[in-house]
Design a protein around this nucleic acid. Structure first.
Length: 570
RNA sequence: GGGCGGGUGGCCUAGUCUGGAUAUGGCAGCAGCCUCCUAAGCUGCAGGUCGGGGGUUCGAAUCCCUCCCCGCUCGCCA
């Protein structure tokens, strides 16, 4: 248990004992009021009925039963509440010691059992990744980092859709068209370059029966499991995927594994799923195509029919996805999927089908709303689109301009490095800070915000800590921190103490937007302390340096958990 | 039409699961602060029917009902 947890537990048990003595049986749930008001509090209204006394009197009597001790600094009753201030010296000592000793491990939870497989991104490899879908890798990667910080064993995975008309069409385009047939691409990266081929082939297929036939034949061969065509498509997809991987790497997203959809055709597992489903009592047939009737799974109306073969007997995306999930369950204990909100029905059907297949487990899904533009939904086809590459490039460039104007003293390489950290951080932070279900409209001025509630704000606080620490050299790391009694110091310690719990909750509740919220709060407390309390050449220099270093680790670890670099100067 | 998700000052947002004291911050606006550890900062001011209505409760942004608005979705596509 972290330091703060001990305090809470201590106070809770004292309260429970006190209430029991007064005749109350039940649960005691503490609250965290505004820090100005109290550290911890218990509203006493809930006990009024059972104890037949008014809340202020209960609070009064209960507070009289509890006296300050090594954990409790102060206890008092106020307006029906019983308030606590913890023993600040002890809290400071425990929290600061914890941070200084555990350093990059500060905030990390104890190892938890079970393997977690987190699938994210999985965007179709038919074009560069755009901001509309960029929430997926950023939420997925941040959640993976957060869960690891919580102590989970996590691996991340991208499901590559290398099956279907779209990728066959693209493959056809690459072997039948040349550079002359397509408009020049703005970027030489393959994922951008290939879009022209895809669009040109699409047009040709519409206007030429011969081309359409070529592609249809190719698609049939693919679906029949022709290894040659599958391999050819795979090469095309890999070209596109390399571009996507590069974009992801640009925002610090790296996946542990890429699983190709075609695998489940080649190894026969999709076929096996078909046979097993056909044998189930839910299977029905319409014009030769098989489906599951999911009426009794709470899927109503027209959605109750969940097709798993075409009338020609070939498998569908959903069939392969089932095979994939069965495969994932063999490799992990817990499955997490990050999905666009358009996947909800499909996932409900998939979960039902998994039950029919005899799986007791189903994946846990986290859905996000697409990022749209002020003019509407993003679409590569319509040209209303902002690519992740463009956003990142712009963010890094803007950051570079800022660094140049603020820090002309730095050398070029350093300025570029800091600009990179800031640009990437700003992009990640701005997407992560909003809860996933909320619809988000992309605005350049917000995405490129370097002030206020932004990554650079948190990074700057970290750089400030580093700057102080750099100037001082060695100091007494076991200095007596009980001298840190200034309100700014106490506030900072209090927020520092929440860090382990914030990480835990962000992971357990799958609400990673708690991380930026906390990061901003922590950075803000550090900045206020910085402005109000001198550290260097002050009377409590060593104690304050300990606090600064503890804050430095918390800021750094919070940033790293968000996949954002913690530059030492900026 | 059905299902799911969102609606919090001009704009963005936390809090909603687990009801509790004056609703969290940011942006934009206004007024201040760099002879002192980096002003990407700090301080102050101004700005709110928590979509509307009803209910439950000592107490509702939070729970229940209802209505409104926005998004997604309802393929033998992937």
């Amino acid at each position: 248990m972290d330091a703060l947890g001990h305090f809470e537990e201590h106070i809770r048990s004292k309260l429970a004992a006190g209430l029991a003595a007064m005749g109350f049986v039940g649960e005691v749930v503490l609250e965290r009021p505004d820090h100005e008001m109290a550290d911890l509090a218990l509203p006493c209204f809930q006990f009024a009925k059972q104890l037949r006394k008014s809340p202020p009197i209960i609070a009064q009597e209960l507070s009289a039963r509890i006296s300050p001790d090594d954990h409790i600094g102060k206890v008092w009753a106020d307006k029906g509440y019983i308030n606590f201030r913890v023993n600040e010296s002890l809290l400071s000592e425990l929290v600061i010691k914890d941070a200084l000793q555990r350093r990059e491990e500060f905030g990390k939870g104890d190892p938890r059992p079970g393997r977690v497989l987190l699938e994210h991104t999985s965007v179709n490899p038919t074009g560069p990744i755009h901001v509309g879908r960029a929430r997926n890798p950023l939420i997925g990667d941040t959640l993976a980092r957060c869960l690891r910080m919580c102590g989970h064993d996590v691996s991340t995975e991208y499901y590559v859709n290398d099956v279907g008309k779209q990728v066959v069409l693209l493959t056809w385009a690459l072997s039948n068209l040349t550079e002359k047939d397509v408009p020049p691409s703005e970027r030489q990266k393959d994922d951008h370059r290939l879009v022209g081929y895809y669009q040109a082939a699409n047009k040709m297929m519409e206007s030429s029966a011969e081309v359409a036939n070529d592609i249809a034949v190719m698609t049939q061969r693919f679906e029949a499991g022709d290894p040659e065509v599958i391999a050819q498509v795979r090469r095309t997809v890999d070209l596109m995927l390399d571009g996507i991987k590069e974009s992801l790497g640009g925002v610090n997203v790296f996946l542990d594994r890429y699983t190709y959809e075609s695998q489940f055709i080649l190894d026969g597992s999709a076929r096996e799923i078909v046979e097993r489903l056909k044998a189930s009592s839910y299977a029905e047939k319409d014009d030769g195509a098989y489906y599951l009737n999911l009426e009794e799974f709470g899927v109503h109306g027209r959605d109750t029919r969940f097709f798993f073969t075409r009338k020609d007997g070939t498998t569908l995306y959903t069939t392969r996805d089932l095979a994939y999930h069965m495969d994932k369950f063999r490799r992990a204990d817990e499955l997490l999927n990050i999905l666009g909100e358009d996947q909800k029905l499909g996932q409900k059907q998939l979960a039902s089908a998994l039950k029919i297949l005899g799986s007791e487990r189903s994946p846990e899904c986290i859905y996000y709303s697409f990022v749209s533009l002020p003019e509407g939904r993003m679409s590569t086809r319509k040209g209303v689109v902002v690519y992740l590459d463009d956003l990142l490039e712009e963010a890094v460039e803007r950051a570079y301009q800022e660094v140049c104007s603020r820090r002309p003293d730095l050398d070029e390489e350093k300025k570029r490095g800091i600009a990179q950290d800031i640009g990437v951080g700003a992009v990640r932070y701005n997407i992560i800070r909003v809860q996933a279900e909320k619809q988000l409209i992309f605005k350049w001025e917000e995405a490129l915000n370097f002030e206020g509630n932004s990554a650079p704000f948190v990074q700057y606080a970290h750089a400030r800590c580093c700057s102080i620490l750099r100037k001082t050299g060695d100091f007494n790391k076991s200095a007596d921190v009980s001298v840190l009694t200034d309100p700014y110091e106490r506030k900072l310690v209090w927020i520092l103490a929440q860090f382990p719990e914030v990480v835990r909750q962000a992971g357990d509740k799958r609400r990673i937007n708690m991380l930026p919220t906390y990061g901003h709060e922590l950075a803000s407390a550090l900045n206020q302390f910085y402005g109000a309390v001198p550290v260097l050449r002050s009377e409590h220099q060593d104690a304050r340096l300990c606090l600064v270093e503890a804050a430095r680790w918390a800021l750094r670890n919070a940033l790293v958990t968000m996949g954002i670099a913690a530059p030492e100067e900026m």
